[in-house]
Amino acid sequence: MTLEKETPTLRTDVQAVHSALSTGTRPPRPGPLSTSMAFGWRALLKIKHVPEQLFDVTVFPVMITLLFTYLFGGALAGSPRDYIQFLLPGILVQGVIMITMYTGVTLNTDIQKGVFDRFRSLPIWRPSALVGMLLGDAFRFTIASTVILGLGLIIGFRPTGGLAGVVAAVALLLLFAFSFGWIWTFLSLVLRTPNAVMGVSMMVITPFTFGSNIFVDPATMPGWLQAFVEVNPISHLVTAERGLMAGTATSAEVLMVLVWSAVLVGVFGPLTMRRYGRGR
């Protein structure tokens, strides 16, 4: 019965529709940045309307930071307080990388609802819908990073690289996460259901995050695992993060992460866009 309340406004005014049509002249075509930002705005609006979705970037990071610090701290470094000094840059990477997989799940859900048909039918720079979405995610990753860093500081983490080092570390992490996100955009276009995307994402993320230097120094690992850890881009990222936060990063360490980011975008960007253009 609530519908009936709308009756006065429900009647479509043919004259008004007609005049709205006559004023719909086309403005100059917007550039890639502007359309990407518009999609970023859409992502932020969605957070505003459904703030519950920030659960995974607040509670989850707190959980893993506390869990791993107190689980391993005593055994690996003598005390949790000593361990957090080693672990924090790594657990920051772990937390954010695990959250990136929601990008794929969200995109897959979006596509199933049909809203992407509208976006794909607009005369805009094609990747902007996905770029904008990843930009919106960068906001979520910033929240997660802030939560982990804040908690780390409380339980004893002291970055010798100072504020500048920490800010640089977070910026580098956001860049890498943006690049890493293209794996998920590709997967979400290839796989049929959000559940399938989730499943495959876990299979990719688990070996890359745990098979790295996040939790322990690889020196005690068997040779084959050391070899994997050596080439794992997540390890390179963690090394650079540790360096930046300690104020000891070399440009080679940072460059390595930049190269990996470029490779990820260079490979999965075009794969994603090919899939995106083809339709289903």
Partner: peptide, 14 residues
């Protein structure tokens, strides 16, 4: 051109 799909393709979360 413009397209209006069989299932409304606007964003229902906005």
């Amino acid at each position: 051109v413009a397209l209006t799909g069989q299932f409304a393709s606007v964003d229902e979360d906005l």
